[in-house]
Design a protein around this nucleic acid. Sequence first.
DNA 1: AGGGCGAGCCAC
DNA 2: AAACGTGGCTCGCCCT
Length: 590
Amino acid sequence: MKHYLIPPDKIPRMCESLRERGEFAFDIETADNGHPNGGLDPHRGELRLLQFAKTPDVAYIVDTRTLDRPSMAHITTLLEDPSVEKIIHNGKFDCKWAMKHLGADVRNVFDTFIVSRLLSRGDKTDRHGLGYVVERYLGRQVDKSEQRSDWGASELTEKQLEYAARDVCVLPDLKEEMVTQLEHHKLMGVAKLENDIVPAMAALELNGFYLNPSRWRQQTTAAAKKHAKLTNELQDMFYAGSRQTGLFGRVEIDLGSWQQVSVALKSLGVPMDGNSTNAEALEEFTGKFPVVDKLFEWREYNTQITRYGNNVLDLINPVTGRIHADFMQIEAPSGRMGCGKPNLQNIPSSDEYRTCFTAPRGKRLVVADYSQIELRVLAEYSRDKAMVKSFCSGADYHAATAAQVFGVEMDEVTPDQRSFAKRVNFGISYGAGPGRVAKLTGKTIEETEELLAMFFAALPDMDKYLRKAAWTTLRSRQSRTMSGRIGRWAHLDPEEHKHSLKNLGKNFPIQGTAADIFKRGLFLIHEALRGTSAKMVNLVHDEYVLECDTKDADRVAETVTKLAVQAGEEYIKLVPVVVDTKIVKEWSKE
DNA sequence: AGGGCGAGCCAC
DNA sequence: AAACGTGGCTCGCCCT
């Protein structure tokens, strides 16, 4: 394998050559620029090397320190050219740096990291680092020892250049083998869906979400005060109730320890079944035992300060002043995304927290979310006439369902009937049974069984579809979404895990197809808004959050709504796809 | 000391 | 007998 360091005057020729086969492999090396972990943060680190490979035997290497403006523009144009495919391993990383340091919003990516996750079809034991993937698909070993070497050195060593070349040269072969396997498993369609959004995921992370730190701090301080007061009061209650007076004065229990809390509650006479102290187990004692009410209150504030306190503030990037969370494009086997550091997908929905995330001065947030997307997917799969009718009527779906179930007119539906329908509608695609629904609705099991029978009788095709989905998955231990994404549970014994498999069979296609739609929408939106003031700043399963100049907000909202609906309509034909969009200064639920 | 695990709880 | 799907984070507890 040869490698050439390309000087600026040879870059046009290099770019020309890289276009010849319609695809090339791309990789980068970064330096920390004197910041701890700066080599992972495009806002602080230095983009040092660009590596290109058209074939497995030759790598072109560009040292960005030698780049001038015209040669950089050549590379940017090439990276943005949709007619040339870039094979990258974990393209989210490279695209972020290309965007920040070269101004390139990369197009047409084949991401061997993402494709590896797809080919694993939900097997969480598979690892997807380049070394593992090359070993798994090509049976070759890769030496990663230079990965953490000093890429900020003024003179890079021959060893470093060789490493950089090897990393990029393995990718064309890897892609070829992966395409064979994608075709074999009929995963080419979903591979395109996923590869398309890699640059959008990069942009999302690079942009970050603005969090108002003083407002957040204020919120945390208020919670800490209440927490301290409640801690005292709770300790008093537990102490007063304990028979042991204690030779050494008051013995405090650790309120965060469920074992200790369990013992303490029992000593106060709370007739608990087992040792569980979770909300569900203690719910029946609220209003009867003041200590239980107090405990719930304490936990609320405890969660607020431990989970959402300073930990989130510590994650504000010192350069941008924003939160650049870590989004994982394929985290759940269903295709749903994951997010961490911090998890922007489970910020409490109450206004106290959400409204701390704001649009900076002169900007607005455009928040668009799919309405009832999973139920619409279920309607599409099942072709259930009653479901389709309810959705097509455009009326309140839960009320419309209740009307069908209870055989009354829409305006005769009681709040109780609507509430029951709503609970069942939410639980249905998860496979919730009578026991769970009874708990949710506060009715008896017998009553719930009767109502559920009415529910399924009113929606017979939905019932039929869910049963079929459950049984086929139990038999095959595999399921697909509409895009063709595969989930498989070969490790689950069908006898032992019968119930889980059946519920997975019901839920996987629904949750997964909703994720397919969401990802397709993300791609369309990213493409349509490239070069505008609009930037994606958060994604929460069925909600897009964008930030844009105030003057552009109306147009951005219109575009996002149109394209999100369009994405939904590529999959859902029988019922309308509805996206609710609002323009706000602060993030909020309503 | 640090890893693994489960409880508990936040989101959709 | 009953059985609610997908995640992440922080804590206490238990182990090595």
